[in-house]
Design a protein around this nucleic acid. Structure first.
Lengths: 154, 154
DNA sequence: GATGAAATCCGAGTCAC
DNA sequence: GTGACTCGGATTTCATC
């Protein structure tokens, strides 16, 4: 985590995270450097992996993905093969936004977006409990999204 | 959810979600429409709320936010005031990426990014359990991020 | 009512310094 | 790191279907 980032780099990161459509000219003005400098800095931030991409945010409820569900998963066995098989299969599911191996009462936590509860019930029965090595799942329907996917503060 | 989106609109949404830096010219070519049409369509998608923004993705471990933690929260009381106070306070915390009111064994689920475990322990002791109305928290350290914040499929 | 062609203008990307 | 120069794309207009 050796920070080779100066004030300007940090400013560029924060500005682009807030608005990825910012033109290089506007970005340069906001970061108080010349456009040419800004352009080189930004390119470097991409090349060195500080910025991994730029993504437009689609409103979930506008494309029939308005229902959010958190699912805790417990596996049968705690072997590397078991974990590997589960992860490979879970990562392929289109409705899985997050899949994290955790320490605690569950093995994995999934964050899932679907159209509605009926949709989720079908997916749960047909795809989630059918994932390799799943012993048990616990479903937490999200009733209110207070904060979802907030930008990183640093 | 009345879909007024045709094939072209969906294509634009998917392309911009995958790459928010796409130039209008490239986007038009990929969506098989003229640049003028593409520009108008894209603008409409923003104006009508299908696209809510464009965000550059910052690599968490590059800015000292490499540790991800999920936290389940149970409140003392289940009154609207209690929920409201908790939500208002939680939404202000800079390290909270997600805060969702859920049905099940917890009242809320938080997704939190910090620098390391020591960082989290400090935050947990000083800020999380100090949130209004918190009776109990359960912490799930993420040991492996299999999928994090995958783009929405629709 | 939406489209695509053309015309203008501004910014990206590259140069020398 | 700055300033200038060139080229390509963003944005608007307009005729057309």
């Amino acid at each position: 985590m050796a920070d080779e980032l100066d004030r300007t780099d940090l400013k560029i990161l924060r500005l682009l995270q807030a608005n990825g459509r910012l033109s290089n000219a506007d970005l340069a003005a906001a970061a108080a450097v010349s456009p040419a400098t800004c352009h080189r800095r930004t390119q470097r931030l991409f090349e060195e992996g500080y910025l991994t991409g730029v993504r437009a945010l689609v409103a979930p409820h506008k494309v029939d993905r308005g229902t959010l569900v958190m699912v805790g998963v417990v596996l049968d066995r705690s072997t590397p093969e078991s974990f590997g098989a589960f992860e490979a299969a879970a990562a392929k599911l289109k409705f899985v936004l997050d899949c994290h191996l955790v320490a605690g009462d569950f093995d994995y936590f999934l964050k899932i977006r679907v159209g509605d509860m009926a949709d989720f019930n079908r997916i749960h029965g047909q795809q989630l409990i059918a994932l390799p090595g799943v012993r048990q799942t616990r479903t937490f329907f999200v009733m209110k999204e207070v904060v979802d996917n907030a930008p990183l503060e640093f």
